[in-house]
Design a protein around this nucleic acid. Structure first.
Length: 318
DNA sequence: AACACGGGCAACCGCCAGAAG
DNA sequence: TCTTCTGGCGGTTGCCCGTGT
């Protein structure tokens, strides 16, 4: 009776997302589009996700990683962090002003406020409000420069309420226009090609990379590029390390002179160890308190698949 | 140099309305 | 029609890192 659950709730991974998981999620959304969160755990097999780019990419990279996130977590990660078009970094004065005005008008309706700031997520706005603006306004309030109904007296003292509302309406119209533009782009191309500047949200892409006009292709080609570099270092590591380990390494070859440099160097080198630890099935198991047997089974399966893939694709992975 | 503290932010939690079976 | 689940939302937590002592 009723809907079947989307995924096995026991053994679902929590905590910070790893780059591997992000790659998987991005590639999934690129293939299936956002909004199918219920199918994410299905398509990723709940426990094992095999990202097969063999038929899609000239680089023919294959990757095994573990995704044990519930659909809700996937949706949240996508909407708050990975979704193209998200602007990160400090808020501009204009944005700040708009948030203050809209908060005064709408209250703590962060989603509604975020709809007028298409480049910002509700979570970001909420965080910014709680950490910055609340204090700022309190200060202003105590100094008499701000009234608690959302009017910054220093700015609006001389303007009538009608003028203030017109200003706000103009701001809202501007934001609406921006939103409509964004939506019309979505309509024309369900999975648009994003330039690297459009994915400024992507946390592993350094500032200089954002300046590039390199296309962030919709067909996972760039992820394939990234994986190519990644699997290359992985296979090198495998020859040196025990084959029983299914851990993944993030090493960056910044000597490459092509676009790949931007992607590979985008990973945080300082965290590479942390990532490799966190992404081993052992580490994941510890994290979730899984039984040793389950972990061993997963390791075995992973090792089998991994050896199969690397053996088969040695000639393809350079 | 070591420790304590606080700020910032990603991610989780719990609730609700609506959808799906 | 009822039950169960998803997706969306706001509130809250906890970790990481920078700064002060």
């Amino acid at each position: 009776m009723g809907r079947p659950p989307c995924c096995d709730k026991t053994g679902v991974k929590k905590g910070p997302w790893t780059p591997e998981e992000d790659i998987m999620l991005v590639s999934f959304v690129q293939e299936h589009g956002p909004g199918n969160w219920r199918t994410v755990p299905t398509h990723t097999g709940s426990f094992l996700f095999l990202l097969d780019l063999y038929s899609q990419s000239e680089f023919r990279a294959r990757l095994i990683v573990w995704l044990r996130r519930c659909s809700k977590s996937c949706r949240l990660r996508w909407t708050n962090y990975l979704r193209p078009g998200i602007k990160r970094g400090s808020f501009t004065d204009q944005e700040e002003k708009m948030i203050i005005q809209l908060q005064a008008l709408l209250g703590n309706k962060w989603a509604a406020i975020a709809s007028y700031l298409p480049e910002r997520t509700d979570n970001d706005i909420k965080n910014y409000w709680n950490t910055h603006l609340k204090k700022k306004l309190k200060k202003l309030e105590t100094s008499g420069l701000y009234s608690n109904d959302g009017h910054c007296l220093s700015t609006y003292n001389s303007t009538s309420r009608g003028q203030w509302e017109r200003t706000l309406q103009a701001d809202i119209n501007t934001a609406k226009q921006a939103l409509q533009n964004a939506l019309s782009l979505d309509k024309s191309s369900p999975i648009p090609d994003y330039t690297i500047t459009d994915i400024g949200c992507y946390p592993y892409i350094k500032q200089e990379a954002k300046m590039s006009t390199t296309t962030y292709a919709s067909n996972a080609e760039n992820i394939a590029k990234l994986l190519k570099q990644w699997t290359k270092s992985e296979s090198t590591n495998n020859s040196e390390q025990s084959k029983a380990s299914s851990s993944t390494q993030y090493s960056c070859n910044t000597n490459n002179n092509n676009a790949m440099t931007e992607y590979s160097s985008s990973f945080e080198p300082s965290n590479s160890d942390q990532f490799s630890q966190a992404t081993t099935p052992e580490a994941a198991g510890k994290f979730h308190g899984e039984s040793k047997r389950e972990i061993d089974d997963e390791i075995q399966l992973s090792v089998m698949l991994e050896s199969w893939l690397f053996d088969e694709n040695d000639d393809l992975l350079i």
